[in-house]
């Protein structure tokens, strides 16, 4: 149920089913979400500000404090430690404008079809000077798995179908934040490499996190056993370390943006300077300085 002209990439009902299945045992697999949640919380602590009304999207973010005068709840969580207070579609936010002081989203936005649309709605749901702080998976995520599966599928079936999601690129995010109407936008990234005993434990983890393939264009046929075995062999061969363990790359993108407010720093209007640049530079060799 989204706008007619938007491009559907992900199957939202399937994403929800994956999350519900993952919820049963999520604590065993939540380490990546916990780690990134900690990094988001560190960023939040650096901002010396109280955020009374909060919406946390995704897993492992702050638990709701049930105080009557503040709103502080989690949406769409599979994490039992942070139970959901509401469920909704990230592309169809059910909130009045100017409802929140803070919206955080931890590794939840990579399944959104219309990311610009979702971000515009979050910008509107924020109060003036409210903060949007989010993490999401970036383009280098699972690059080893993507390449191994692609090559294995080509070798064993003669064709390739998408099995790992396309992810956003950090270079796109600054512009995306600006287009969504956020002030003072910042985007950056870091990389977390997880080492697994073998590629099978990586696949088990992805399932446990509720993060298996939900692409609409995914092949409806299950992965053939020979394809899987070849992919695992390629993964070991190309990326395996001397001790037999294999790395899996997770690129994490971070975004910060503020709902515009008069108190925020802005560039001055051109021509509004009261001091000449020459004065600022100490009049080194400028001869045409005004008297």
């Amino acid at each position: 149920m989204s706008a007619e002209n938007s491009i559907e990439i992900f199957d939202h009902q399937l994403v929800r089913r994956h999350r519900q299945r993952a919820a049963i045992n999520f604590n065993k697999f939540s380490f990546l979400f916990d780690e990134v949640a900690d990094r988001l919380k560190e960023r939040l602590e650096e901002i010396n500000r109280r955020f009374p009304d909060q919406l946390c999207l995704g897993n492992s973010m702050r638990a709701p404090e049930n105080k009557a005068d503040i709103l502080n709840f989690t949406g769409n969580s599979t994490d039992k430690n942070y139970p959901a207070g509401i469920e909704f579609d990230e592309e169809l936010l059910p909130f009045k404008p100017a409802s929140f002081d803070l919206i955080t989203s931890n590794l939840a936005l990579h399944w959104v079809n219309d990311l610009p649309g979702a971000m515009i709605q979050m910008q509107r749901a924020l109060k003036p000077d409210g903060l949007f702080l989010a993490s999401m998976f970036g383009g280098d995520t699972l690059t080893e798995l993507r390449h191994s599966l692609m090559q294995a599928e080509e070798e064993t079936t003669g064709g390739v179908s998408p099995r790992v999601s396309p992810f956003a690129d950090v270079r796109d995010l600054g512009g995306l934040l600006q287009r969504a109407g956020f002030a003072l936008p910042v985007a950056d990234s870091d990389t977390i490499t997880v080492h697994y005993a073998d590629p099978f434990s990586l696949l088990a983890d992805l399932r446990g996190m509720g993060e298996t393939n939900a692409l609409l264009s995914r092949s409806r046929k299950p992965l053939r056993r020979d394809t899987l075995m070849r992919a695992v062999a390629l993964y070991r061969e190309k990326y395996g370390r001397a001790d037999g363990r294999v790395p899996a790359t997770f690129q994490i993108l971070y975004m910060t943006g503020w709902h515009p407010h008069d108190s925020q720093q802005k560039p001055l209007k051109p021509g509004s300077a009261t001091t000449s640049l020459a004065d600022a530079l100490g009049n080194l060799s400028f001869n045409n300085k005004a008297p």
Partner: peptide, 13 residues
């Protein structure tokens, strides 16, 4: 549901 949550909810469509 939470009273304050009800105050800010609108139809998503």
């Amino acid at each position: 549901p939470d009273r304050k949550l009800l105050e800010i909810l609108v139809c998503p469509v």
